Amino acid sequence: MDLRALACLAALACPAGAETVRIATWDPGLSRDGPGLLLRDIGRDDPQVLAAAQVIAANAPDVVLLTGFDWDLDSRALEAFAALLERQGHPMPHRFSAQPNRGLQTGLDLDGDGRAGQPRDAQGYGDFTGQQGMALLSRLPITGVTDHSAALWRDMPGNRMPPSDHANVQRLSSSAHWDIALQGADGPLHLLAFSATPPAFEDRNVARNHDEAAFWLRHLPKAPFIVIGNVNVDPADGDGDAAALEALLQVTQDPAPRGDWQPPQTGPNADHLGDPALDTAEYDRPPGNLRLDYVLPAQGLRVVGSGVVWPAPDDPLAEAVATASHRRLVWVDLDLE
């Protein structure tokens, strides 16, 4: 019995013959230290790349947003990775990516260290343009994309941007904000996709992380939608401000995807308040394991299953999951009929 059938049985919500659509998000660790290196590694069957493909193919999403995937101008790495997935028996013919803000230099000394052209002087932290970008792979046709990534932080109503001499340059998105329209069974389904900066490393990052999530509160489409991606904030643990996430949860539904297994809640996890089964990121140092990755369907959509791919150590998929990334793939099954 496959994962979707199990999800239907668990939810007791799938009518006979109903077809579900699996929507997933994951940071698969498909980012490298320089441009072109990811394409090189895909071409030479790098073990970490193969592990990432194995995890995706094993869970068979109809749509997956990758929030840690290096962008290149001609999408050669994305095309090569899609070909690898097809060889593993999981073709995803529809794809989208665009230049992210990570590594996109402003030409200014944004962090005030006296040097321009450094990673922190880019619109989003990155050693090169496209590092840690985003990509979408889909079995559903993509009917349109609205890219909000160039929006200035200062122009967002109610923003928390600290006073800055560079307010007329600094964009809100540390990576990207995309409204991706997919062709669903009864009309368009909008993915409100983003990957927020971690609320760490710089004082302003807590405010930026909050505002990147809050952005979608003012850009909700009238059509069915899903807020999806690396929100990079845990509602109970860690250092972020979860107020914007909590506001998004008022206009969506939280399927609360759970993993099958969690490591012992010791060390940096010992004082955590959140349910460890909801965690999607593994850290062996403070702040410990956190829930950072989300698939949040609009309230009118029908959820029939969900999960976090965190298998027990003796599971056949466990080695691939651990090899690929410290993040865990999150999936939600929807009945769109």
Rank of each mutant, 00 (worst) to 15 (best):
residue 263 P to C: 04
residue 89 G to K: 10
residue 106 T to I: 04
residue 159 N to T: 02
residue 228 I to G: 01
residue 202 E to T: 11
residue 71 W to Q: 13
residue 327 R to L: 02
residue 109 D to T: 02
residue 53 A to F: 04
residue 39 L to N: 06
residue 32 R to H: 06
residue 109 D to R: 01
residue 267 G to K: 05
residue 24 A to Y: 13
residue 83 A to M: 08
residue 103 G to P: 11
residue 323 T to R: 07
residue 261 W to H: 15
residue 198 P to F: 08
residue 293 D to C: 06
residue 167 A to P: 15
residue 311 P to N: 08
residue 288 G to P: 15
residue 181 A to F: 00
residue 144 G to W: 02
residue 273 L to R: 08
residue 306 S to D: 00
residue 99 Q to P: 04
residue 68 G to H: 13
residue 227 V to A: 14
residue 243 A to F: 09
residue 180 I to T: 11
residue 206 V to S: 09
residue 299 Q to K: 14
residue 9 L to S: 03
residue 86 E to Q: 09
residue 311 P to L: 12
residue 99 Q to T: 01
residue 125 Y to N: 11
residue 82 A to G: 12
residue 98 A to I: 04
residue 292 L to N: 12
residue 116 A to N: 06
residue 200 A to Y: 07
residue 198 P to E: 13
residue 40 R to K: 04
residue 53 A to R: 05
residue 310 W to K: 04
residue 16 A to P: 03
residue 243 A to L: 09
residue 238 G to K: 06
residue 5 A to W: 02
residue 326 H to W: 00
residue 168 N to Q: 08
residue 146 T to C: 03
residue 321 V to E: 00
residue 34 G to Y: 00
residue 137 L to P: 03
residue 120 R to V: 02
residue 74 D to L: 14
residue 52 A to K: 04
residue 292 L to M: 09
residue 281 A to G: 00
residue 92 M to N: 05
residue 27 D to P: 11
residue 331 W to M: 13
residue 291 R to E: 09
residue 27 D to R: 01
residue 312 A to G: 10
residue 246 E to L: 07
residue 148 H to T: 02
residue 37 L to Q: 06
residue 115 R to Q: 07
residue 43 G to W: 06
residue 259 G to C: 04
residue 27 D to G: 14
